[in-house]
Amino acid sequence: MDNPYNVSSVLLLNRFDLPPETVFPAFLFATLSYMIILFCNLILILTIVLNKSLHQPMYLILLNLPINDLIGSTALFSQVIKEILTGIRTMQYSACVAQAFFIHIYAGGSVLTLTAMAYDRYIAICCPLKYNTVMTHAHIMKIISCVWLSVLVLIAALFILLLRLPRCRSELTHPYCDNPSLLSLILVACFRSKRPDTKAKALQTCATHLTVFLLLECLGLFTIISYRLKNMSPQLMKFMGMSTLIFPPTLNPIIYGLKTKEIRDKVVHFVRHKIFPP
């Protein structure tokens, strides 16, 4: 009590309180969810990488989305599955910071990758005659490099500022680590607690993109707001927080794979001849 900065390097996770009989179903659900995310996103990555006909600007930018989704889902599920399996609800502070860093890389990478994809669709719809001149491979590489460099710089700066602040407690808000959870451990937070065809083409082209973007933004915004709602159910808060890292990585490869004919045909061919050969 005399030293508010004397806190343990081991953090206490605010996990789901699962009855003993639900531990195995929860472990099975989490494991299957992660395997589905891995399978769908790896199939999308391999389909684009192994088919030269898909080495076009739109698909090269899209390639970054499943890579980013794998970063976020791996950061989440590796810890959640371990916690469900072992029942241990503690975590080293350094491991928590690492998990939070990669989760925020995923969040920032999702927004900037979707922004880059929106720019590609803007050029394709508004400047179709100039598309091949503007969206060269060199330009695409610059866009992709800017996306990842921007994410790394922004998130690194965020965590450098965060880690300079003192902590006064060791219990997290969620069953996983993110920046708001870590921020709530600092002293300040503790004190505060006291045309028609053209339009149709554009809509058809952008509908999927807008759906994915709105899904990500709505879930992310709800998660941020939930930290400031004191009367929200803790279980609902935990579920919504984790849904941001579960639903987009699961739905993205399915949505883009089913909606984009070129990718859909290549995925079916890849699965039939590479994974399940006759």
Rank of each mutant, 00 (worst) to 15 (best):
V271C: 09
C40F: 14
A200M: 03
H273T: 15
S184K: 01
Q92S: 14
P175C: 09
H273L: 14
Y122C: 13
Y119A: 08
L13E: 04
L149D: 06
A202L: 05
C206Y: 04
M58R: 15
G108I: 04
L152S: 09
I36S: 10
F222M: 04
L236W: 07
P19I: 05
S94H: 11
I263F: 10
P277R: 12
V153M: 01
I103G: 07
S226A: 07
L162S: 04
K266P: 02
P25T: 10
V151M: 07
M240T: 12
I275N: 11
R192N: 06
F29A: 03
T47Y: 11
T208M: 06
K82M: 10
D69C: 13
S145W: 11
M35T: 06
L245N: 11
F27W: 07
I143W: 08
C127W: 12
Q99R: 09
C126Q: 14
K142C: 14
T113I: 15
S8Y: 13
L70Y: 10
V23H: 06
T211E: 00
N68P: 02
N51V: 12
V212F: 12
L183D: 02
S33R: 02
F24S: 09
A30Y: 05
V147R: 08
K194F: 11
P234E: 08
T86E: 04
R15F: 12
T205P: 00
T136F: 08
I37S: 11
S184A: 06
T115Q: 09
S233T: 00
T250C: 09
L54T: 05
L76I: 12
A116H: 13
T211P: 00
A75P: 12
W148C: 11
R169H: 07
T260A: 08
V111L: 06
A200G: 00
C146W: 12
S53M: 07
N252L: 03
L85N: 14
M232R: 01
I160Y: 13
D2P: 00
L50W: 03
Y256N: 11
Q92M: 10
L32P: 01
T47E: 12
I160T: 06
D120K: 07
P66A: 09
Y256Q: 07
L46A: 14
